[in-house]
């Protein structure tokens, strides 16, 4: 569970975040929400799918790190250091919350995050002023906030043209274990080809065409993930 505190120069004057353990921290994360601005980078490393948020039922694009819950194949295989880290994970342990007093969005830190302590790492404040690290985190958060707005406009357009379809992946590993991956949605290529030309043009102008092809090409990373998992199974 999170315990969020509004970031405050007095209260958090000594607070530090130890970034060395960031990847280890996410060792059991099997997917992350991503935003449109980072599709191109994400697609180089991870398969991009669309998933429904369990709380709202709304679609969000995600980068997949593992093939089952709590599994992170990138971390397990040591590949993760070389990969791009999605903004959502970069932004932790910071969050934007609505300040209970001012009702305005304000920066908050999860003090239950194991990386948050007072001994080592990046300080939030230096001489009472926001550190470059904290400023950077706040930039990431505002980029994320903007990204989620863009995401939902993008997704609404996809749904309006029936461009998402559910996929069920049937995986069989070398040790005979079979697995079905459900709850994932991807771009419906057949429908995409049928989109009328004036809509195609609109997609081009909005930058959607590039996003769509990034998402579609990224799906091939799934077979890489299966290969790696097979390899991991062979070396216990």
């Amino acid at each position: 569970m999170h315990t969020l505190e509004t970031v405050n120069s007095e209260r958090h004057s000594k607070t530090k975040v130890s970034l060395a353990s960031t990847l280890a921290k996410h060792a059991k994360v099997h997917m992350s929400h991503i935003v449109l601005q980072e599709f191109a980078e994400v697609a180089q490393y991870y398969p991009i799918f669309f998933c429904k948020d369990s709380d709202t039922g709304q679609f969000q694009p995600v980068a997949l790190f593992g093939l089952s819950v709590d599994e992170n194949i990138y971390q397990a295989s040591g590949l993760w250091q070389k990969c791009y880290l999605p903004l959502k994970l970069q932004s932790t342990p910071f969050y934007l919350i609505k300040d209970p007093q001012t009702e305005r969005p304000s920066l908050a830190i999860d003090i239950k995050d194991t990386r948050v302590q007072e001994q080592q790492g990046e300080a939030l404040f230096i001489n009472g002023k926001a550190s470059p690290y904290l400023q950077q985190q706040s930039v990431i958060l505002s980029e994320l906030t903007q990204g989620f707005v863009l995401n939902s406009a993008f997704i609404n357009d996809l749904l309006a043209h029936n461009l998402l379809e559910s996929v069920a992946l049937d995986i069989k590993y070398i040790d005979g274990q079979a697995q079905q991956l459900t709850g994932l949605y991807t771009i419906n290529k057949e429908m995409l080809e049928k989109v009328p030309s004036e809509v195609q043009k609109q997609f081009q102008q909005q930058g959607y065409t590039a996003l769509l092809s990034a998402a579609m090409s990224s799906v091939s990373h799934i077979s890489t993930l299966i290969d790696i998992k097979n390899r991991l199974k062979r070396q216990p």
Partner: peptide, 11 residues
């Protein structure tokens, strides 16, 4: 209440 707020998806 969630249906009123978010709605179901068609797929």
């Amino acid at each position: 209440e969630k249906i009123h707020q978010f709605g179901f998806s068609k797929i």
